[in-house]
Design a protein around this nucleic acid. Structure first.
Lengths: 203, 203
DNA sequence: TTGACAAGCGGAGACATCTCCGTTTAATAT
DNA sequence: ATATTAAACGGAGATGTCTCCGCTTGTCAA
């Protein structure tokens, strides 16, 4: 939970660890007060009493910071998903898909603002790489497995799109931009959204 | 073609019209030299020899400017689509959908950079309102009609998602973020992408 | 022609992102 | 203890977005 970096290389310097704490606390405080969207990296640096350079050394953008603030919840999400998939091993894959989607949507509701924060900076910055975040990579893998299983069972239509492609499309459909638009503009409740998205991708 | 504004109210002031021309020419020049992505509103203002305020008065962001530069092509796109739909009136709706998608993908390839420009500023700014652009609204309408028709024909699965929802998802799938990722990272050619997207949404 | 005035202009400036680099400092070796 | 050094710091500044507002200028009516 402590490892922002993969390489265990050497332990974090004391002052650095201190600053990391300061940043996370400051960000959390400001996010709660003003909403993720409204808070700038600058404000966070000031609130944490560090220079902008120090903040950017650790988090290249607000998205990475948001991701760090969600680490625990993401781990929990995947634990829940694993559990669910195991418990329903016997169900048809499209049913397990629905369960997975339900869990993800619940997660997305709980961490709505932070997730949006992640996605916005991710697409502003890297090579369109919201899709590279470990969160999405891991979900993608699970989805591909499920879709492949559906194909084999093959009660459904004869020619289906590639599972990788289909998983990509489903993840687009689950993005903040898509989900919040459906919820806030089209007026779908989370449950209705789940129903619709499942109908769109289950076969 | 001249109407950036809906209200015909009163004709454009002479100096304003002049500036509009200057802006469009400057933008086109810079976009060609450096690519849409790399050019800032600032540079455009300087190249057009006007103040930043003047530029922003006319175009609230780079996206609007890109849209204006594409106006003609968008009109042509819709003419092509209308023509195609009429000529294939007798074909099954899913076939007409494929034609429409092919036309859109061709358009998207031709105007790739500008379209990305539109979508990026649109989502950075307004209420997630890439979806509000007339381009997408009009496409959405056409898609809904086709999906509704497919439902009625009803050879396909019994319960389908709402056509509005499905059209929204399809448009997400056709966005720059999605399309360019598939093309550049997953390595799908435009033709393969068309095939896959059609398989995903035709039923 | 002239006067009035809405529309347009433009640049200063508020803020934001992000980088560069000289300085400081914690950790480790001696 | 002290020296060494890689890492971390911090803030100035380059560049960008976007707004505000006093000034200028077409346009139209008289």
């Amino acid at each position: 939970m402590n490892d922002t970096e993969e390489t265990p290389g050497r332990s974090e310097r004391r002052d650095a660890a201190e600053n990391r704490q300061r940043i996370l606390e400051a960000a959390l405080r400001l996010f709660e007060q003003q909403g993720v969207e409204q808070v700038s990296m600058n404000q966070i640096a000031i609130e944490a009493q560090i220079g902008p350079g120090t903040l950017y050394r650790r988090y290249r953008n607000k998205g990475e910071l948001c991701l760090d603030l969600m680490k625990e919840n993401i781990v929990l999400l995947f634990e829940n998903i694993e559990t669910h998939l195991k418990q329903h091993r016997a169900d048809p894959p499209s049913q397990r898909l629905k369960g997975l989607l339900a869990l993800f949507i619940r997660f997305r509701e709980k961490k709505s603002q932070l997730l949006t924060g992640v996605e916005e900076s991710a697409s502003t910055n890297r090579f369109k790489s919201r899709t590279q975040s470990p969160l999405y990579l891991e979900l993608h893998e699970l989805l591909v497995e499920l879709f492949d299983e559906m194909k084999v069972d093959g009660q459904s239509s004869p020619n289906q799109p590639d599972s990788v492609f289909k998983a990509d499309m489903l993840l687009m459909a689950l993005s903040s931009e898509s989900y919040l638009f459906q919820r806030d503009e089209r007026g779908y409740s989370p449950e209705k959204f789940l129903e619709q998205i499942w109908l769109t991708f289950h076969s």
